[in-house]
Every structure is written in C-alpha cells, then in structure tokens.
Design a protein around this nucleic acid. Structure first.
Lengths: 117, 117
DNA sequence: CGCTTATTTCGATAAAACTCGAAATTAACG
DNA sequence: CGTTAATTTCGAGTTTTATCGAAATAAGCG
C-alpha cells in the first residue's frame, strides 16, 4: 500500500456519515445492504449518500454489486486490513523488544511490500 | 471509543504530512523524536509542523515529553490500537463463520464493548 | 417496449482545512 | 538573570470538502 492510497482510505473514514456507513456495512457482513436501505437507516438524502458511497468505494473500502434494481454495498475487509497493516508497518523499526511491550500489538508482518502490490 | 474520537484520529492521519509524520514516529519507537528533527526530516516549515503535531496530539495518536530544550514526540501505540479495534468491532455482527473466512481478520475481541454493541 | 423505481450526476453554496512568514512564548543554559 | 535556542500562536490567503434539491441515468419488470 502506498501513502496516497492510505490517505484516501483514512480520509474516507474520517467523516461522521461515512464512518457510520462503513461500520454499518461491517456489521452487515458479506451480504451487504442496498443503497436505499442505507439512506433510510442513516437518514441521509440520497444524493448525499451517493457522494459518500463513491468516496468509500474509490478508497477501496467497500464493494458494489447489483441485486435486482438495487445496488448492494458491502464492506471490503481486505482493504481495511491492508490499511491497518500499513499504519503499523516497520513499527519500532522492527526491534524485537517492541512487540513484547504491548506496543506494536499489530502483526509486525513488515513483509517489505513490493512497490506494485 | 466513540465515533467522534475515531473521526478525530482518522482525520488526523488522513493528510500527507501527518501520515508521514506518524509513520516516522512509529518507526522511531518509544524514544521518539524532537520537533526540530521531524521538521528537518520531513522538510516542513516549523509553523506547519506545529499545526500538524497539535492535530495528532489532540487525536491521541502521539505523546509529548520534554528533553532539555526540545519537545520530543512519540507514537501512541495504544491510541492507534484502540482506533483499529473500533473500526472492526461487531464485524459481521459477531457471526462465528465470519472470522474463518479471511474477513474480519482483526481480533474480534470486543473487549471494551458496553451494552450498546 | 414503455413504465417504474433505484441511484447517480450536476450545480451552487457553505464550511472546514492547509500553508507559512512573522511575532510571541517558553524554558534551559551559562 | 539575561541570552539564546526550540517551538508555538496568529493572521490572511488558498484549496479542499460537505450538503442537498432537481434533473438525468440505468436497469429491471410487466
């Protein structure tokens, strides 16, 4: 993951309605929810919701599929996990004493990401 | 963690310079780095850096201590982990089949959850 | 096929965030 | 205690982001 992608994802989540929306989809699981149901649940005008859905989608945090007339959105767990890994990579510069101190609790996979992941 | 806190933290990280700054501190580990060294490393004017440091500090993502004349900043790993846990809490509404599918890979500890799931 | 419904795009407005030089502050050092 | 070094606050200009109604699009349904 590159800095620009992480900023896109973080910025997508750093907004009241979008955070509520993402967490709603996280709770909903793989089935996801149609846009209309989300708008009703969050009490947001359709046009505003569409804007926010586009942001989350562009950031790779949600997926879109069609079911009949409805567009169904679901959380992209892989994207989320990639983001979290990126934030903690190279924690403490990989020092071994770090993970043992309840810091760097995240998986210190480091894995030296390829540039073109 | 409450939504407002999460938004503050996510917004703090959703910015080019602040993300670079945070990751710099994550790499630096518990020792941290003085403000001046950070400004030099990131090539940001002192006044701009101060603005960004304040944002990260307010979001609970970094700590500040004094060492001689320098103010030393370090990553707050606990704050970071709290944020990541919040984002994935109630993943798939707690269904057991979820964690096994490479979704919800984050620890579904739901440790500090109160009643309000 | 046309009709219906779900969702997105457009446009204008309002609000918030970023930048950075200069001045002010703060604390250590001699 | 004055001086100096490190950092923050202030102010003004620029850029980005959020909001939402109305109109347009797209796709299923009968």
């Amino acid at each position: 993951m590159q800095p620009g992608e992480a900023i896109l994802a973080l910025g997508a989540l750093a907004q009241e309605h979008r955070l509520a929306l993402f967490k709603l989809l996280v709770r909903a699981g793989a089935e996801g929810l149609p846009a209309g149901a989300i708008a009703a649940e969050l009490d947001i005008p359709n046009s505003s919701l569409s804007f926010h859905l586009a942001q989350l989608n562009r950031a790779g945090l949600i997926n879109q599929t069609r079911n009949g007339r409805s567009l169904v959105y679901s959380a992209n767990y892989a994207g989320m996990n990639a983001l979290m890994g990126y934030l903690m990579e190279n924690c403490c510069a990989g020092s071994t004493s770090c993970g043992t101190e309840a810091s760097c609790a995240a998986p210190a996979t480091s894995s030296s990401e390829r540039k073109s992941a």
